[in-house]
Design a protein around this nucleic acid. Structure first.
Length: 469
DNA sequence: AAAAAAT
């Protein structure tokens, strides 16, 4: 299959081949013909599989081949919304490069920068607008932009755009768009069912495309978990980074302040580090990402601002210093590595208070995780992976007994956790209660040398029926 | 309960 077969126009094919794109990815193969027909799309595909081109190429072809419907001042005809400024910039850049042989005036609209330029560009008129919601609404209220001529709407990272934080803004923008004759394209790597239902309300008979089983991640990414005491995470991170000090690593933290502190610590320890989060100025954000992409710093410490969409060439490793608050964000974070078929490594430092999060992640991924202590950094009290604190009622007999195990031996063989309980599979409650309840909670929490406990013992988080209630 | 997105 080649791009020619998908019905793309010569002016796009030429730009693609010049940029080295030869064969469409599965999501592109499926989405492009449907989008060219004018269908609405609800499209899910793994991170790093070319979603931008999947919506961008049909969008540009539409703009390039259909004459503008209205006379008078030029109004934007296509609108792409993205959840962060960096992603909006990246998408805009990509679309510019695909449309090299077209004359499509465009603008990228987001906050944190002056409005003057944006006023000018909008007044001169654009066909294509890539934007973050906040600043776009600002322009709407100032009447410096008119969205009544939008023919195509794209929500990139659609599930994020429709979550509680963004939804009010999206609704405001939707209210300014024409309802008739509008094509709506939604793309994301993760789609929760409730989000899907919400999306259906402002789409018309969308084709639903799911290229790979939903919420899965690239097979080329390996997942490793290091149990550790929260208080020793910094040291452990430093230890891990020092092992291969030239390797580009994206480190995710939970809070802006935490990321700042961590970046300072690493920098003082001699690791070239930058931090990026929403409290930094747009200039600082730009520089941090630029320095990291260019290799001027080896470590970028980021909040979830960098979790989605950001494309960093050949990034070999992502470390979750803190686990994300929602399991879907794990998928997006580690999707910064292993892009386009390359290999990647995802490492998560997990303290006791994150055990539950890890279990949710394993369940979502339905994937093996290599859980192993780092010699010298074993948690003082082995992690209890069970689904409740000791003494909670819903785990009869499971977790409430006091930990009587000694610490794990150093350098033991890795255990493997697997989400056996994902969807009606074998290890749900009833069946799992007996044997695997004990195993699921028992083994990873650690006491036993796990070499001997492979079978049931190796299940770890998510294994063995943690579906109480 | 955190982050993002307008100022």
């Amino acid at each position: 299959m080649s791009f020619e077969n998908l019905g793309l126009a010569p002016f796009l094919l030429r730009a693609l081949s010049e940029q080295g794109y030869e064969n469409p990815t599965p999501i592109q193969e499926q989405a492009i013909p449907l989008a060219l027909e004018g269908r609405d799309l609800l499209a899910g595909a793994q991170t790093g599989t070319g979603k931008t081109a999947a919506f961008g190429l049909p969008l540009l072809q539409h703009l390039g081949t259909n004459p503008q419907a209205v006379n008078g001042p030029r109004k934007p005809r296509a609108l792409v919304l993205a959840p962060t400024r960096e992603l909006a910039t990246q998408v805009h850049d990509s679309l510019r490069s695909y449309s090299k042989y077209l004359r499509i005036p465009s603008a990228c609209i987001y906050g944190g920068v002056g409005m003057g330029n944006q006023f000018d560009v909008l007044r001169r008129g654009v066909d294509l607008l890539v934007a973050c919601p906040g600043r776009l609404i600002d322009h709407l209220e100032r009447r410096s932009v008119d969205l009544s001529g939008i023919e195509i709407l794209v929500l990139d990272e659609a599930d994020r755009m429709l979550d509680m934080g963004f939804l009010p803004s999206i609704k405001k923008i939707l209210a300014k768009l024409p309802r008739q004759n509008r094509q709506t394209l939604l793309f994301s790597a993760t789609f929760e069912e409730s989000i899907k239902q919400l999306a259906l309300e402002f789409m018309r008979d969308p084709a639903q495309i799911q290229v790979t089983p939903k919420n899965t991640v690239a097979e080329t990414i390996t997942h490793r978990v290091h149990p550790v005491d929260g208080a020793r995470k910094r040291e452990l991170l430093l230890h891990l980074l020092a092992q291969d000090s030239r390797e580009q690593t994206l480190v995710f933290g939970r809070t802006k302040h935490g990321c700042d502190k961590l970046a300072m610590f690493l920098d003082k320890a001699g690791i070239k580090t930058a931090a990026i989060h929403g409290n930094k100025s747009q200039g600082q954000r730009l520089r941090a990402l630029g320095d990291f992409k260019a290799g001027r710093v080896t470590v970028l410490v980021a909040t979830d601002i960098a979790a989605r969409g950001i494309d960093i060439n050949e990034l070999p490793k992502v470390i979750n210093y803190d686990l994300p608050m929602v399991p879907e964000d794990y998928v997006h974070r580690i999707g910064r590595t292993g892009r386009n078929g390359s290999t990647g490594q995802a490492i998560s430092l997990v303290a006791q208070d994150e055990a539950k999060l890890l279990r949710q992640i394993v369940r979502l991924l339905d994937k093996d995780m290599d859980i192993r202590d780092v010699p010298g950094f074993e948690p003082q009290t082995p992690i209890r992976w069970g689904n409740s604190a000791p003494g909670k009622a819903e785990v009869p007999g499971g977790d409430r007994s006091p930990r009587k195990h000694a610490r794990r031996p150093h350098g033991e063989a890795p255990r493997h956790a697997h989400a056996g309980a994902k969807s009606g599979g074998g290890q749900r409650d009833g069946a799992g209660r007996g044997a695997s309840r004990g195993a699921g909670n028992g083994a990873p929490r650690g006491g036993a040398p796990s070499g001997q406990r492979r079978g049931g013992g190796g299940r770890g988080p998510g294994g063995g029926g943690h579906r109480a209630g």
